[in-house]
Write a protein that binds this DNA or RNA. Structure first.
Lengths: 247, 247
DNA sequence: ATCAAACCAGTTGTCAGACAACCTGTTTTC
DNA sequence: GAAAACAGGTTGTCTGACAACTGGTTTGAT
């Protein structure tokens, strides 16, 4: 079931020292003060410079190592790895500060969702197709009831629909990536703005975009599914970007 | 410039306690012993149970928190978060143990690379196109020299080529994702196997697949670029999967 | 009896210091 | 001259302590 959206977001952001140290070191790397191959100052040195305990510095470096940004060797030191060694993809909340970045993020989602939908067209089971149909039916009903009456229901079922489609690709990597991107968008795009934007996503013209995706899935046409999904998310992103209240 | 591939990979895998603890806890979550909302045992408890110092447990939990898998609150405890709160996408080396997983990973790369190429068709600058042309020319020369003579050069230039194409999308998120996936594939697919596979990727028929991508980029045809890139990577994945020495 | 304030046990966050494991370069020894 | 021992420095782990905070309990005033 779609988890109930919390009425108020968790505002709780107690600054944690290791995170701040990690961000600071990361900044030095992105800023070019530290380039691939360079050795970081020793933990003792960093500890002194930041004015925190070594455990804090260690935890910070541990995070960077986890993402493949540095590589530390006992008895030697920690070194900045070259950029092609990154082992994770993450979206920092800072991505949502600039308008252009949001657009780029939506582009990425469009591409990935398109790929996932294409796969789903050929890989889906009949069971999965039935679930998708059911969700789409729910969504259609909500749509016809209009934004004033069924906004929540409409938005929830749409999110669920595309999650089910992605899962129907039966490829866990697609599921992970799409989920991750979608989560970040939902969490970070200011909620009231998303609400407003969602309200304008009603109507037959827009439902037709969704129908095209469903039809392609039903007929098992991967190419059509890719195109339909692409068209739908591209259009949504365009409409979003066109809103005058777009931050 | 393409960094010189190391003759021997770093085999150095000194077990780090925090990583192992993190994996263990993660296993409990994936295995369902701990579900969203559950509280983890206290750090002291975990420390005792794993037989390690609390600093080690703390570092482990810190990693999980970094990925949005748990959320810890001072004075209360650490809680497993809802699966849709994951804030990173990462590929564990374990993914390369099962044949099916590798295929799925290649599917993901195909989709993402396709999206990036489509974007590149419209967003590339003339400068970037020139660089792509240059790399493609290098690659063509290497191809005509044959696998016995120019294997390294051929492989390197191809990697560089698609990296440049991705960068020509001028979308940093695409660049990050593609780089990350590619890095993991290069690092984890056993090197000699990749070498063998690369040797069979020579010849005019295969070069035609690349040419199609380049042509689409040159003419600014996003749809053609997406299709060509998809075709090319799909075909490569199929050939890889068809090899009898495929693990 | 009610309700707010004070208290208490438990938990995470940070600090400080110590030692083990390991690496690199230097010195000693044969 | 080469191998072995040594020395200093660095990361990895351990221990113990205290600060900051939370949730629930007790206490105290009204």
């Amino acid at each position: 079931m779609p988890e109930t959206a919390p009425l108020f977001d968790r505002i709780d952001r107690p600054r944690r020292l290791p995170d701040e140290v990690a961000v600071s070191i990361m900044g030095a790397i992105e800023g070019g003060q530290l380039v691939a191959g360079d050795r970081l100052p020793t933990e003792a040195e960093l500890s002194k410079r930041f004015g925190v305990a070594r455990t804090v510095v260690r935890e910070a470096i541990s995070l960077l190592r986890y993402d493949g940004i540095v590589d530390s060797r006992r008895g030697v030191g920690a070194f900045v790895t070259d950029a092609s060694q990154r082992s994770s993809f993450r979206i920092s909340p800072a991505c949502f500060e600039k308008r252009k970045q949001i657009v780029q993020l939506l582009q990425l989602r469009t591409g990935v969702q398109s790929g996932a939908s294409g796969l789903a067209a050929t890989e889906r089971t009949v069971d999965q197709m039935a679930q998708i149909d059911a969700t789409f039916a729910r969504m259609s009903v909500a749509d016809s009831r209009g934004p004033a009456d069924a906004l929540e229901e409409r938005v929830d079922s749409e999110l669920l629909l595309y999650r089910q489609i992605t899962e129907a690709s039966n490829n866990p990597y697609y599921v992970e990536v799409v989920t991750m991107i979608e989560t970040n968008i939902q969490n970070n795009l200011r909620s009231p703005f998303l609400k407003n934007a969602a309200a304008s996503e009603f109507g037959p013209a827009i439902m037709a975009e969704h129908t095209a995706v469903i039809e392609a899935l039903r007929s098992g046409d991967a190419e059509a599914a890719r195109t339909a999904a692409r068209t739908r998310f591209q259009a949504a992103a365009d409409r979003l970007a066109a809103r005058e209240d777009f931050a």
